[in-house]
Simulated assay, not measured.
Amino acid sequence: MEYRDNVNLDQSRVRYGGGGRRGGGIAVGGGIGGVLVLLLALFLGGDLGDLIGGTTTTTDSSQSDVSGADCTGEVNIDENRDCRWGAYEVALTSYWESAFSSGFEPISALQLFSGTTATACGTGTSEMGPFYCPGDTTIYIDEDYMGQLLTQLGTTRSDAAELYIVGHEYGHHISNLTGQMSKANASSNQTGEKSASVRLELQADCYAGVFFANTIKDPDSPIESVTQDDLNRIVDAARAVGDDHIQEQSGGFVNADKWTHGSSQMRQYWVAKGFQSGDPGTCDTFSTNDLGE
């Protein structure tokens, strides 16, 4: 994935270290850690409320130091690698703002942390992997642990894979803005290959694909190009975070009744569908029975 040279990045929504606001809500797990934690809980037992932050917390943030990057002025991201997070957020916000005729609000922050952090959805931990909290409209990422999870799940870390993950979490924000997230969360059908939970996750995958298709057409995007190799890495990341693949990686058998995010095939299908169409309107995973399984 190639970046434009000497870009000016708005860093106002990228935070290094620290915690989010306190409040209510349930964290929406991303394609990696959230699913792995949930599956381990289902296999091994445990309190899901504690694992995914289903209750309000008053616990102070406790984490290792996550230093802020100096990304002021014109930035060459290939030379200042920490600034890529700002590039991800700027590209995503710019596209989604253009896609809405009205009512768009960007995420409050892309929060990088290490260890644990306070969020409006409860205490966020590294082991949860990347997640979106609708209570404070913030995406939370432990970048080191995310790399470990990608490796653990059998894929290669790359900027394209990272941006797919952040794009997926931003997709949850879009579902939150449109009201689809609250409708899905109100459903009693929360597991299974055609559950509301799976449909919500596949919608986020589709939105990530739509974003990639459009940002490379934007001359002002910090993302200049996405190569075929990048696309292969994105598809491979989608495969790696499929429920069936994670169940197999966890030493269990494939049980579609426990799926919360969709199979590898389903996730690849919706990322590709979004990328090929470039149209958010094709991402209505709630009005079809063809989920690509």
Results as ranks from 00 to 15, higher is better:
Asp136Gly: 09
Ile107Glu: 07
Met128Leu: 00
Glu127Thr: 15
Pro134Leu: 00
Ile107His: 00
Ser94Lys: 11
Ser126Val: 06
Ile174Met: 03
Ile141Trp: 10
His168Thr: 10
Leu153Arg: 11
Gly103Asn: 06
Leu153Val: 14
Arg157Asp: 13
Met128Pro: 03
Tyr95Cys: 08
Gly129Thr: 00
Glu143Arg: 15
Thr117Gly: 12
Tyr164Gly: 11
Glu143Val: 14
Pro134Gln: 06
Ala109Asp: 01
Thr117Leu: 11
Tyr88Phe: 15
Gln111Pro: 01
Thr138Gly: 04
Tyr140Gly: 06
Gly154Asp: 05
Ala160Phe: 11
Ser102Lys: 07
Gly124Arg: 01
Tyr132Ile: 01
Tyr88Pro: 09
Gly86Arg: 01
Asp82Cys: 02
Gly115Val: 01
Ala118Phe: 09
Leu112Cys: 01
Met146Trp: 11
Ala161Lys: 13
Thr125Lys: 09
Ala91Arg: 03
Gln152Asn: 00
Gly171Phe: 13
Cys83Asn: 02
Ile139Leu: 09
Trp96Asp: 08
Ile77Tyr: 03
Leu92Ala: 10
Gly147Pro: 07
Val90Tyr: 04
Cys83His: 08
Ile139Pro: 09
Met146Pro: 02
Glu79Leu: 14
Glu143Ile: 08
His172Val: 04
Gly124Ala: 02
Ala109Arg: 06
Ala118Leu: 09
Ala160Ile: 12
Glu143Ser: 15
Pro106Asn: 07
Asn80Thr: 05
Ala99Ile: 10
Leu149Thr: 04
Glu89Val: 06
Gly171Trp: 07
Asp142Ile: 04
Ser108Phe: 06
Gln152Lys: 00
Ser126Met: 02
Glu162His: 15
Ala160Met: 10
Pro130Met: 03
Leu149Ala: 03
Gly154Cys: 02
Ala120Cys: 07
Ser98Cys: 01
Val166Trp: 13
Pro130Gly: 10
Thr151Asp: 14
Ile141Lys: 03
Gly171Ala: 05
Asp144Met: 10
His168Leu: 11
Gln148Glu: 15
Phe131Leu: 05
Gly147Met: 14
Val166Phe: 13
Ala118Tyr: 04
Glu143Cys: 02
Met128Val: 00
Arg157Thr: 12
Cys133Ala: 05
Phe104Asn: 12
Thr119Tyr: 01
Gly167Glu: 06
Tyr164Glu: 08
Thr137Ile: 05
Asp142Glu: 08
Pro106Ser: 09
Asp159Thr: 14
Gly154Met: 00
Phe113Met: 12
Leu163Phe: 05
Val166Ala: 15
Phe131Cys: 01
Ala109Glu: 08
Thr155Gln: 08
Trp96Cys: 02
Ala118Arg: 11
Ile107Thr: 02
Tyr140Pro: 06
Asn80His: 02
Tyr88Val: 13
Thr116Lys: 11
Thr93Val: 03
Glu143Phe: 11
Gly154Ile: 08
Phe104Arg: 03
Ala109Trp: 00
Ala91Phe: 08
Val166Glu: 11
Pro106Gly: 03
Thr93Ser: 06
Leu110Pro: 10
Arg81Ile: 10
Thr116Tyr: 11
Thr156Trp: 06
Phe131Gln: 06
Thr156Asp: 13
Met146Ser: 12
His173Lys: 04
Tyr95Asp: 03
His173Asp: 06
Arg157His: 13
Phe131Arg: 14
Ala160Trp: 13
Ile77Cys: 01
Thr151Arg: 13
Asp144Ser: 14
Tyr170Phe: 07
Arg84Leu: 07
Gly167Pro: 01
Gly147Asn: 15
Thr156Cys: 04
Pro134Ser: 03
